[in-house]
Design a protein around this nucleic acid. Structure first.
Length: 435
RNA sequence: GCCCUGGUAGUGUAGUGGUCUAUCAUCCGAGCCUGUCGAGCUCGGGACUCGGAUUCAAAUUCCGGCCGGGGCGCCA
């Protein structure tokens, strides 16, 4: 055999009929009818059929029929047109190489008729990922991240990488993972917030990062991970937060558009992606509260929206034709310390929501160091703990703003996936540390 | 952090004090079958999360551990 694989399953065309080709992959199914057997082989692009006849070649027939499912083989044989086989052709094998034998029974069936639970699937993720509908999620994920790079580079953002091991918690509030760093104590970053802001003092002006977020909160829900990814972005010399929102809505637009082009994967997932229209609706926080209170909510001014209120707002906005919308001018007390205040009680912070779920949040940031220290104190944080961050504000810091944007939440929303653990290859949740 | 909930073959389930020697499907194994594609048929295999308590009797009730699922708060 000259090579393990000359063709992928779906790349075989009528040009190959009558020729010797080789294919390789995992044995998905063996249907032994007696004197004839059909072996379904799966590769990256799809499946194909190998047809073995006992009469014609008993040795190869016996070999193929006795391999366990999900073993890896390479087959060389005659490619023959067949209306009865999938893809319109079948391979008549003349050489079979077993590259890897799968143990039996499988901990999880790839094409079994019985659905497994998410836990079983995650415990055996390497097999779970053999399913085309699971792979489709990550192929789409790859595409939308490509769209992020493409769009942001076009807008002159540069991709950066900031530390994940840090000396103090980024923003206070949420729980962080503590770890030993030689003789010191360190933490895992809950976001690149402080670093991307510091980069605004360098003149790089526009940066973004596909960032890891580590959060030690002990929640156990469908929409929380303890390790997640995000698109984090920061830009300098902005007039106000509107400049940031423009980038964000265009980014989201481009991501949806790119996802809508993944026709094959969307078909497999039975999903339709409708590209949103620009610009997204801007709604002031005050109007949101009024609107919700008119609809039988009892919200105090200054309160953050609970998940039920968020959902209700999503329904109200949808009736008005807005699937995506910004909530702007949040009360300063509902936003983190680095958020730029506006007037007495407001801020230049915003959230982007889609279908009643918050998918991104951002703001214009404070660039004045005295104001920043005031806000730290007001939030019961100690400016001393933030000295290396504050230093970047003392020697020339332009006005700036940015946002963070959870990739898994976005995928859930995009593909109507019910559990966030489906959106990341190897999820880390409250109890899961392996695989 | 708080609250609710669950754990039966490899997988997914039925069974809620007593012929349970535990159901069914899938799966695995042996066999039959020349056009399967959820192949079919015959035969066989395989399980009660762990520890303690109650009881004549526990998969089933109670307590605890371990491991899950979900909701709230918080957040992405």
């Amino acid at each position: 055999m000259e090579s393990l694989r000359t063709h992928y399953s779906i790349d075989v065309t009528s040009k190959e009929f009558g020729k010797i080709i080789s294919v390789a992959g995992w044995i998905e199914d063996i249907r032994n009818i007696g004197s004839i057997a059909f072996i379904i082989l799966r590769d990256r692009k799809g499946t194909l059929q190998i047809t073995a006849l006992k009469k014609q070649h008993k040795e190869i027939f016996d070999k193929l029929v006795n391999i366990s499912r999900e073993s890896v083989i390479s087959v060389e044989g005659l490619c023959q047109q067949s209306d009865k086989a999938r893809n319109g052709y079948e391979i008549i094998p003349n050489e079979v190489n077993i590259l890897s034998n799968a143990e039996t029974p499988l901990p999880l069936g790839v094409v079994d008729k019985i659905e497994s639970e998410l836990e079983t699937r995650l415990d055996n993720r390497f097999i779970d990922l053999r399913k085309q509908e699971i792979q489709a999620i990550f192929k789409i994920r790859n595409e939308i991240i490509a769209a992020v790079h493409e769009y942001l580079r076009k807008e002159h953002f540069i991709e950066v990488h900031t530390p994940n091991i840090i000396a103090s918690s980024s923003e206070g509030g949420t729980d962080v993972f503590k770890l030993k760093y030689f003789e010191k104590e360190a933490f895992l970053a809950q976001s690149p917030q402080l670093y991307k802001q510091m980069l605004m003092s360098t003149g790089l002006d526009r940066v973004y990062e596909i960032a890891w977020y580590f959060r030690a909160e002990e929640h156990n829900t469908r929409r929380h991970l303890n390790e997640s990814t995000a698109v984090d972005l920061e830009m300098a010399f902005i007039k106000d937060e509107e400049d940031v929102m423009k980038i964000l809505e265009n980014l989201v637009y481009n991501m949806w558009k790119r996802a809508s082009l993944c026709k094959e994967e969307l078909d497999i997932l039975n999903q339709k992606v409708t590209v949103p229209k620009l610009p997204f609706k801007r709604v002031k926080y005050d109007d949101v509260i009024d609107n919700l209170n008119k609809n039988n909510c009892n919200l105090q001014w200054g309160a953050d929206l609970g998940s039920e209120e968020e959902k209700l707002l999503g329904e109200i906005m949808k009736k008005q034709g807005h699937e995506f919308y910004f909530i702007t001018k949040y009360p300063i007390e509902a936003k983190p310390f680095y958020t730029m205040p506006e007037e007495e009680k407001y801020s230049r912070g915003f959230d982007l929501a889609c279908k009643g779920v918050e998918i991104a949040s951002g703001s214009q940031r404070i660039h004045d160091v005295d104001l920043l220290i005031n806000r730290l104190n007001a939030c019961n944080l100690n400016p001393k703990d933030f000295e290396s961050y504050l230093k970047a504000f003392r020697f020339g810091m332009p006005p700036h703003g940015g946002f963070g944007f959870g990739i898994e939440r976005f995928l859930m929303n995009l593909l109507d996936i019910k559990n966030i653990r489906e959106c990341i290859l190897f999820p880390r949740d409250r109890t899961r540390l392996t695989p």
